[in-house]
Design a protein around this nucleic acid. Structure first.
Length: 106
DNA sequence: TTGTTGACGCTCA
DNA sequence: CTGAGCGCCAACA
């Protein structure tokens, strides 16, 4: 399954304290329409043995739409804050500043 | 096999 | 500025 692996690899490349969006990943790998598959891939990342910093991936607005799918003992917002990313009300503060775009960074 | 669902994103009213 | 709706496509019942 190369798509999932590609997603995992790319997510692992996200620098500490930075975040990116599903759409950015999808566009970099295939095209914008694949964003839904990215979400599914990350969902799978939990049952995969390789660790994937899925908390660094949010939707295009910087909202933690996937927070509810994280383990209760490992809240998405908390993980981000521990990396220095401010999260407020389920949304990344100054998303534009911490946004990491694979298209331009790679 | 068919229908529904979803960690999205874009468009239109 | 909001909210509703639609398209995509793989997984699942």
């Amino acid at each position: 399954m190369s798509f999932n692996d590609d997603v995992y690899d790319l997510v692992r490349l996200i620098p500490y304290g930075r975040v990116t969006s599903y759409g950015a990943i999808a566009k970099y790998l295939v095209d914008n329409r694949a964003s839904r598959r990215v979400g599914w891939a990350l969902n799978n990342s939990f049952h995969v043995e390789s660790e994937v910093p899925a908390h660094r991936v949010v939707n295009r607005n910087g909202m933690l739409s996937g927070a509810m799918h994280f383990p209760p003992d490992r809240p998405m917002a908390q993980l981000l804050k521990e990396e220095g990313v401010d999260v407020e009300n389920g949304q990344v503060v100054e998303f534009n500043r911490v946004f990491w775009d694979p298209m331009t960074e790679l």
